[in-house]
Structures are given as structure tokens and as C-alpha cells.
Design a protein around this nucleic acid. Structure first.
Lengths: 226, 226
DNA sequence: TGTACATCAGTGAACGCGCGTTCACTGATGTAC
DNA sequence: TGTACATCAGTGAACGCGCGTTCACTGATGTAC
């Protein structure tokens, strides 16, 4: 009945840590309710007593922050992977957008956790840290820096406009794209019963005026949208 | 120290009900944390004991649902009022969008409560009800039916396009507009520390391709955007 | 090879807390005679 | 005008719950001699 958990060897202290993080995520997906993810529930599922968690995490906030960090890494990875086979910058952007939306719809509770709640309590001088854990701004373009990668993609896309004077602002454009896909994902998660058009329809409608503009003013390279 | 609360007269049972709703909202704004809004905290602030709340609301869910309904009515009212002096359908749309965003930024915790959380637990046959309490779809265009009013505005705007064949889908367009403004508001609420462009900048960037298209194809009436 | 000892991953019991909700009640307000 | 009574808004005390966290501890794992 009670499968005896093998105790970690001396050097393997991090094994339980990993299991805790994995289970926390598991519970998040299953219950679709982040308030159901308690230290006790996690410990139960891992097969360990609640206090053991504190050997690996200072408190619940730290644990959740780590889960969030993981989620961002995964989101970033999904987008990077989707963009790998892109044939041109616009295609790259479309693929990233789709991957972003798919990620949110597939893991709504993850998405809610990291992008639909206020950031965990931040102290006054915590701003930089706050922005970093926001997952969309990092000191370097490291793994998990989804916004950094987005910026790069937008840069490539904007370079298609040969006249620098007619190029929109880089940061503002990236934010606009992020905002657009977030709107689609976040409202669906919050209001699943609303009669939403298909995601493709939504994306097409948003993209249509841009497409029309681009067709009016020919670009350096051809475009292909899936 | 303890100001004695005047007890309601026979017919005035609804007075406390109103006070409870008002205080619940007050707490929501002040604490900016909907989990801090407990029956006990509400009762305390009203100057009454917790059980009294149950004379007016079946349980906490009903209370919160009522607060949400109020919030939607207010949001709708804000948009309708903002649109009153519009000079043309496009102006009307812009004003509504701005009012929507302003409402969300001014009452972030209200906004989160009704548009950034999953709808309260719904039973299988609760779909219609669910959509109704979503606040954006009602049986009639009554007060509080913000989405219904949005649809009407979009209809007027689309009518500017004289060629019906080139008119985009009504519902899809309304959803696109809702999604766009929601993205702007919701991300700001969730990530206040992110270096956002100004709201006007964000709106302008979204609107710019449409504007360009409209300028290319003249409409029946002139446009004016604040 | 054997024994004493240090390490430290995980335990068991308990803490104090705030929560939503219940129950039998009190006592002012209004009504009937 | 006065008294007995019904109504019902609000009370006080308590319930059981799950939570995050603490503390002194146990006992297997590894190390030194």
C-alpha cells in the first residue's frame, strides 16, 4: 500500500527538489486551480512529508517562483522550436505567435500562473528582479528569455522594410505582437464558454490590414503564412 | 469606539445588502487582492457580524457574483458615456476602447475579478447562464451588456464600408477589438513593472494599418480621433 | 576488516491562523385586539 | 391608549477545515581511524 520511497543518497539532495517541482506542475495541470497546489498536496503526491519540502525551498513563494521560471523556459523553447523551420521573417513571426497561443491553450493553468496574475510581492528595490522574473526581460538572451527572442524576430521582420524612416519602433512593435496574442489566449482561458471564432480566424483578422499594406508595398523577400 | 449601527427597519432589509456589496467592492479596490475579501473582512467593515451576511446572500459565491454583475454594469456605463459625444462611428469605437482600457487600469482588481479569472464553477447545463454572467452576452441589450453595445458600435462602423462584400464579419470584428484592448489592459495589470509604451502609442500602432487602409479607400464620412 | 562517529535527508507532532458556515438566541420593530 | 404577541434583522459562540511553517528527532549513508 505505502510504497517506501527510496531515500536520496548523500549527493542526491537535488533529486527530491526536482520531483517536487515536477509534481507541483503536475498538480497545476490536473486541478486547473493553482490554489489547490499546496505544500501538503505536493508532499503527499511526492510521497514525502510536508516539512521535507523546506529542505529544498525556503518557502512556498520560492517554490512557485521556480515553477514559473520553468514554465517560461518551456514557453520560450516551444516558440524557438516552432520558429526553427521558418522560411522568412514573417513566417517566423507567425509560427512563434501560433506556438505561443497553443502553449497557452494547452497549459492554461501554467499560463494563468505566469501571465495572468500580479507578480509575486516585490520589494521597492526589486524592480529589476521583478522584470527579470516576469520572464520577458533578462540580462542576456538566455534560454527562457522569450521576450528577448521575440525582439530578435521582430528585428528581422522590420528589416524587410528597406526604408528605415518607415520602420515602426522595435520595442513597441514587439509589445504590440505580444499584446495581441495574449489577448487571444487570456480571454479564452478566462471565458471558455464565450462563442470564440477559431484562433486562425482571429489571427487572420488581426494580420489582414498588415498583409494588405505589405501587398501594397512590396518587400525584399516573399512571404509565406501557414 | 464602537459606533452602534442603526438596525434596519422592517422593510429596509435591502439596506444592509447594499452596504455589503459596496464594502466588498471597496475592499477589492483597497487591498488589490481579491483573496483578502473574506466574509469576515466585509462584515467587519460594515460593522456587523459575519452571520448577518447570510441573511442577504446564500453564500460567498453569490455575493461575489453580484459584485461582478455590478462591475460589468459600471464598465458598460463608462463605455456608453464615453461614446455619447462621438462624432462618427470610428470615433465612437475609439472612445469606447479608451474607456474600456481606462476602466481596467483604474480598477485593476475589479477587472481581474471579472475578466482575468475562470468563470465561477459552472454545471453542465449552466452554459447559457455562464455566458450571461460572463457579462458580455445577454438575452437583450440591457444595461450591463457591454458586448451587445460593442456589437452595435461595430455594426455602425462596418456600415461605413459601402461594399457589403468587403465588410468583415461582424462578430469576429467585435471579438478582435475586444481581444486587442483586453491584451493591453490585462498584461499591464499582470506585469506592471514591464516597460510598457504609453497606451496611446499602443492603440495607435494597432490602429495604424487600419487607418492606412481607410485612407486608401475613402469612407462615407470623415473621421476624427482624439 | 571492523568499529565509532559525523552528516544530513526526511519524519512526526504540533503551532496558530483565518476561513466559510451553522445554530440557537435576542431584542427592537411593528401589528392586532 | 395599552397590552400581548408575531416578525425578523442581527448576534455570539462555536464547528471543522486546510493551510504554511516550526521544532526536536530518527536513522540510513558515508567517512576516519
Amino acid at each position: 500500500l505505502t510504497p517506501v520511497r527510496a531515500r536520496a543518497r548523500r549527493g542526491e539532495g537535488d533529486r527530491l527538489r526536482g520531483e517536487i517541482l515536477a509534481v507541483a506542475e503536475e498538480l497545476l495541470i490536473e486541478t486547473a486551480d493553482s490554489s489547490a497546489v499546496s505544500i501538503r498536496a505536493i508532499a503527499d503526491r511526492v510521497g514525502v512529508t510536508p516539512p521535507s519540502v523546506y529542505r529544498h525551498f525556503a518557502d512556498k513563494d520560492e517554490l512557485l517562483a521556480d515553477v514559473c521560471a520553468q514554465v517560461f523556459v518551456r514557453l520560450d523553447r516551444a516558440m524557438e522550436e516552432a520558429a526553427r523551420d521558418a522560411v522568412d521573417p514573417v513566417d517566423e513571426m507567425c509560427r512563434k505567435g501560433k506556438a505561443y497561443i497553443q502553449f497557452g491553450l494547452e497549459f492554461p493553468e501554467h499560463y494563468r500562473l505566469v501571465l495572468m496574475r500580479p507578480e509575486v510581492h516585490l520589494h521597492a528595490d526589486d524592480e529589476a528582479h521583478g522584470r527579470r522574473i516576469a520572464g520577458f526581460e533578462g540580462p542576456t538572451i538566455a534560454e527562457g528569455n522569450a521576450f528577448g527572442h521575440l525582439i530578435e524576430s521582430v528585428e528581422r521582420m522590420l528589416a524587410l522594410q528597406p526604408d528605415p524612416a518607415r520602420r515602426p519602433d522595435l520595442h513597441a512593435t514587439a509589445v504590440a505582437i505580444w499584446t495581441a496574442v495574449h489577448g487571444i489566449v487570456a480571454l479564452r482561458i478566462a471565458k471558455p464558454l464565450f462563442p470564440w471564432p477559431s484562433v486562425d480566424e482571429q489571427l487572420a483578422l488581426i494580420a489582414s490590414p498588415w498583409r494588405a499594406l505589405l501587398e501594397g508595398a512590396p518587400t525584399e523577400t516573399g512571404r509565406s503564412t501557414p
